[in-house]
Structures are given as C-alpha cells and as structure tokens.
Design a protein around this nucleic acid. Structure first.
Lengths: 173, 173
DNA sequence: TTTTCTGCAAACGGTTTGCACTGGA
DNA sequence: TCCAGTGCAAACCGTTTGCAGAAAA
C-alpha cells in the first residue's frame, strides 16, 4: 500500500490524479468514522464546492442552491462548511473585514495568497524558503507551529496601471 | 529638516527616544489637518492605549473607561479607534474568529506575530529575509504590495509541555 | 426505532448608524 | 456661532442555536 500524501486532516486525498470520487469516498469515511449521517444536503454541498468554484463564501454556497428547487438552508450550509473544514476538505481564507472565503484542497498543496485590494483577485503561491524561515523563527521562540497564514495585499498589474498614481488605498489591514 | 523615519500613516513618530508627548503632538496635527476637533474623549483614548496595553480589543478600551466616572460610549470608542488606525497610530491584528486586536506603534517597527492557540500569548518578531522573499514573490506576479500579514499559530513552550501529546488543537485557520 | 439532521426563526456579538443634544474652535 | 462629536438605542450582518418535524441508519 503506497503511503498517501497527506495535506491535512485525517482523510488524505493523495494519489497521482486526484478526482472528485476520491474526495467523495474520503468524505464518506470521515462521516462514518464520526458516527454522523450522510445526508443529501451534505453530499450536494460537497459536490458543488469541489466542482464549481475554488474561492467562495458561505453565502455564495447558499446562493448556489437557492435557485434549485430543493434549496438548502443557510444553517445547514454553515454547519456543513464547518464540518468540511474540520475534516480537512476545505481551508479558510480570512481576508479580514468580514471577507471570509473557503477553498477546497483538491489537488492543492499548501499555499499562501496575494490579494488585490482593488479587484479582489486572489493569486496563490508557494515559497518554500519563506516556510523554512518561519520554522526557524518559531523555533527560536520556543513555539511549536500548527499552521500559518501569510497574506500579501496590494494591487495587481491591471489595477496598478489603472490607478496610475491616484492610489486610493484601503487603510492598511 | 531631517527626514523623518515613517512607519506608516502621515504623521511619523521617529526620533531616538519616542515618548507619549510626541505621539500626542502628532495626533493633534493629524486632527487639525483633517479639520476635526480635539475632544476630551479622543485625548483620553489616545493616552490610554499608548500608556496601558499593547494588544487590546475595542471592548477592552471601552471597559477601561466604564469604571471611571466619565465613561466613553462604545460608539465613540469604535469611531476613535478607526481614526487612530487611519492616522497610522494603531495597527490592527486580526486573528480571525472575531478576535481583533489593536496595537499602538510607539517605538514599534513593522513586525509579524506568533500566536499561542492555547493561552493566546502573542510574540512579535521581525525577519527581513522573509520580507525580502515576499517582495520577490509579489514582483513575480506583477503585483505592487501595499502591506502584508504573516501570522504563525501554534503552541508556546509552556503550553506545549502541558499538552503533552493530547494536542487539542483548534481547527486550522 | 433510534438518533442525527434539517429548516425555520430567533438569538448572538461585534460593529455601525441615525438622531438630537453637546461642546470644541 | 457653527459644525463636528458624543451618547444612546436601534440597526446591521454574518453566523450560531433551540426546537419540532424529517430522514438516515
């Protein structure tokens, strides 16, 4: 049995060609292990967030189902998203100021984000050398790191050009 | 006229031995420049946050004045804190999950944070090499960075020892 | 059948806002 | 005097919760 490459959570996705079926099975096992029930709402939300968007808000998920005949209540959306985060199927990207996004982990290694203050474009990046330096800093202070969050805020090339010196920046943070 | 060392905002603190009087004068100028009024509430809040705590919440500020005979309303506390952030006198440290702290900039260069998930201890650090790598990453993606936020979450030495393998970690975010 | 889950609506908690009165400039 | 600021209470908004009926196991 090949060692699965674990991203996070107890139910790794691993393998060469991650597909939604893998996630689905992993989710079923997660649910079973916790003694929970596999409801249609949970299955539908899982499918939606893994096949449609990459970055999305809780409200957007709720909205996706509002149109369909069998809508899913806001409460259930929130409860299910929490469950998915707990199981390591989703990550949270908190941009502050009540801008809270979720992103699925399918085929995504750990990464950090650059966010455009103007158009909200989100770019992902990996920089192992930063991670390494973080490790060192944490050790120096006697901490044991669990996770980290690095967000770079600025203006993307397009928006920077449009601004052209006027720079109506949001107050930093 | 010597070039003032600007941390952020329009009213730099600079100088060898930063003292509260400098901040106060800087604040007065900020207020004047914006055509606002220097009220007793604003003066008292400024003094309190610069002499008492380093990391504090809006609610804590409100609480500090509840005891005194002339309390300050929650609304005014919020409005004043926003003003101080706008002027670059305070920074915001958003830990997510509605844990939002302010910190004054008196004698503080830019820095990042390590946060203990157990006892909420906050340690500040500076790592120029990380900053440098960030610059490079941002450039590679054609962005122009405005500011960044790096938060390392984990367990401090004390808490790590107490946990001793049981590791009741908060869901990563 | 048993137990969890869902939808609803109300509650929550931090923050903001409208308004009439207050008080700096 | 004049206009911004304050306190109050209500509004806001994303999120959570209590509860009764619905549906997995």
């Amino acid at each position: 049995m090949p060692e699965p490459k674990q991203t996070r959570g107890h139910f790794p996705l691993g393998g060469k060609e991650p597909r939604f079926e893998r996630v689905e099975r992993s989710f079923e096992e997660f649910i079973r292990t916790k003694g929970l029930k596999l409801t249609s709402q949970r299955r539908r939300i899982l499918k939606k967030v893994f096949t449609a968007h990459h970055h999305f808000t809780a409200d957007e998920v709720h909205e996706m189902f509002r149109r369909s005949r069998d809508r899913i209540s806001r409460a259930t959306v929130y409860r299910t998203l929490s469950l998915l985060v707990e199981g390591g199927f989703l990550d949270i990207l908190d941009l502050g100021q009540d801008r809270k996004y979720y992103e699925h982990v399918l085929g995504h290694e750990h990464h950090d984000h650059i966010i455009c203050l103007q158009c909200n474009k989100i770019v992902e990046f990996q920089e192992p050398r930063i991670e390494e330096l973080q490790e060192r800093v944490v050790e120096e202070h006697g901490f044991h790191i669990t996770y980290h969050s690095l967000r770079l805020f600025g203006h993307c090339a397009d928006c920077h050009q449009k601004l052209d010196g006027k720079a109506p920046q949001r107050p930093p943070h």
